[in-house]
Design a protein around this nucleic acid. Sequence first.
RNA 1: GCCCUCGUGGUGAAAUGGCAAACACGGUAGGUUUAGGACCUACUGCCGAAAGGUUUGGAGGUUCAAGUCCUCCCGAGGGCACCA
Length: 806
Amino acid sequence: MRKIKRMKEYNPKEIEAKRRRIWDQKKAWRVDLKKATKPYYNLMMFPYPSAEGLHIGNMYAFTGSDIYGRFQRLRGNDVFEPMGFDSFGIHSENFAIKQGTHPKEQTAKSIKHFTEQLKSMGALFDWEHSVTTSEPEYYKWTQWLFLQLYKAGLAYRAKAPVDWCPSCKTVLADEQVIQRKCERCGTEVIQRGMEQWFFRITKYADRLLKNLDTIDWSERTKTVQRNWIGKTEGATIIFALENSKQTIEVFTTRPDTLYGATFVVLAPEHPFVSSLPHSKEIHEYVEKTKQKTELERKAEGKEKTAVFSGLYAINPLNNEKLPIWIADYALMGYGTGALFGDAHDERDVEFAKKYNIPLKTTVVTGDKEKDKKILNLEECFTGYGTLVDSGPFTGLSSKEAIIKVIEWLVAKKRGSKRTTYHLRDWLISRQRYWGPPIPIIYCDKCGTVPVSEKNLPVKLPNVKDFRPTGTDKSPLATVASFVNTKCPNCKGKARRETDVSDTFLDSAWYFLRYPSANDKKQAFDKSLTKKWLPVNMYIGGQEHAVLHLLYARFITMVLRDLKFTEFQEPFAKFRAHGLLIRDGKKISKSRGNVINPDEYIEKYGADTVRTYLMFLGPLSEGGDWNGKGIIGIYRFLNRVWALAQKTKIAEQDSKLETLRHRTIKKVTEDMENLRYNTAIAALMEYSNALSQADSISKEQIKTLLILLAPFMPFVTEELWQQLGNKESVHDQKWPTYNPALVQEEMMRLVLQVNGKVRDVVGAPTGITEEEAKKLALSNIQIQKWLAGKDPKRIIFVPKRLINIVI
RNA sequence: GCCCUCGUGGUGAAAUGGCAAACACGGUAGGUUUAGGACCUACUGCCGAAAGGUUUGGAGGUUCAAGUCCUCCCGAGGGCACCA
């Protein structure tokens, strides 16, 4: 009876259903968060449950992360691997609009479908600690978080030029505008002056930058964040106005060129411009520029436009009179919104030429030919060089001059060192429906009043027409019962804020909620948080480098400053996974090349799909799914299955033992570095060797199953049980290797002549240089190539080769 | 324009400066099978009958030895961008 059962064929569908049932019953993924002694928080980026179902790209990312979690568990850690849903926000809302259903219904439906799919992939997800950002139990605490920032003076409302997406009908954060287009829908954004809520992330710019050196993240991701924060060192220079007490502050990274300044440019939005005596020409220019859309500006091909203000500034260095122009190539959002123009900046030169403003060379290279052109203004030199025609600074190098000019400015109180950042404050209000209402009340008497914490959550009302209005207001503004409220202060009539917060606020703290997911009294439990955070390993998409990952770091720093937590950085280790493509092309609905994971799981089982996805290439590089190769993995599983049915399990063979130890070493190292593709290859070699062997030991097959368990959780468990083991394969100890056994006794010694391989011979691994030389020089092939000549030099590389140079 | 990553067989890809193409897919031949599929064995970068030569986007360089390090160029992908 037993024998018949053992001989049965590999049937993934049956096995996976059975194993899932048993694991669910036993709650095999459960970890006691309070009692765990070796906490290991393995996090992956929770999905937006907005699409028709789990995308193969989601599965790729989750599998990569789950394998790492399973590996850590086998190494004896108490692994906490939660999963949840980022269900609030524009993604889910847009999908609901498209489907013609209410977001609330649609989200519930999507989550149900997603959960089913997620359960089929065989991950360690702890379903008792899941979060759904659109549930009041969750967003209550998102609102609480907003209030903490408000109280700390880090949330403020201000009127500012903001980016508005005409298609999504809401304002967007700076980070959500890519190439002046909406990150979600690709529509060109319009700049509008609107009063909006911001988080003061710029206050943390320096810390966000400096801390990057302390965390173990993919270097690529760090670079993107560094660039986004965009620290620039420079100086501000105070220009006095001619015949006036007023001054203008200008930002520059090149104070060494100040001596050669010939004009000053102000951004049209610069406050000084509006204070100018109103000439019609200036007024018209400013109005025209403001109305220009980005599209029109682009169509003009960056052609600079300007108007002369009629005023002059005085260069503090040499008292020269500089005309002040108003031009849209000066940007209010950068530096001080004002700049000085000189001959060592291409944009300045282009501008000066168009408006016939004189220029003056003050920096040269030292190359005579080149300098001739530079001095004649035939060529624009923007690099560092030596100063000429610069009064007391003449002869200095640019670098010296920068220091000296700043010293001079500071001494004369005409300027100072200054650092600016590309990073802007985080615009978090949205004129949409599907998000957490911002917990603020406006009272005519008391002004802006925060909702009291005990009255949270401010529940999102059920609105029939939830579509964006296109006005400056969220659909919530149309719900009188929501808007009209009492002032928490004076109990008088008051109005609620009707905007909701950005989805990225929901996801900026979800990892803090997971361990405390069922805590009704607080956002996160102090002792649980201390025990489990920061996250040990976070694997996710590189596309979130400047959005989610930056916001999460910011929120974590704020919470630490407010003494809620004790750590500055949320994710100790972060690794970005690559993109899964198909036949060399991006996978997208519009291309019609989407892959439905369900189909493949149905056909081959989740074990095969997981392993195939990881076999495509290194996780960090992504992979190219062409679907054909999946059969190779399926065959591999079948071979492993057949191998475990092998009855000839007997004594150990030393050759296989060497391979076993080598495989353990290779796989362990590859797992650590997320090089799953080569780990799988090594396991295939090991498995193939076992298949071909006459007899294999129990230890050898056990090693195979444990090493394979993170990749193929179902079939390894099934085979483990078939071998008569009572415990789960996933509760075993990761095998260790003996370094002494990794090395084979005999090796292949490569014999080279002048760097070319002429023969390969067997030799003892520990062969000495002398012995190797003898061996090589007596070799017939080598003698043939030496042709009687004496070697000039012999290079011996132990355990590898000997190279004879003639 | 600036910054980052990457270019290796028919395909996905391997390779601490030390035998290029591991592991797979596909292909060819053979075996097995009532047939199909599945499975098993051998071969499979290119030129060559063989000996041998040759090959990692291109051109140089360093080195006994370069896919790997350096310089320039070409191409692909990503990020930033009138950022002073």
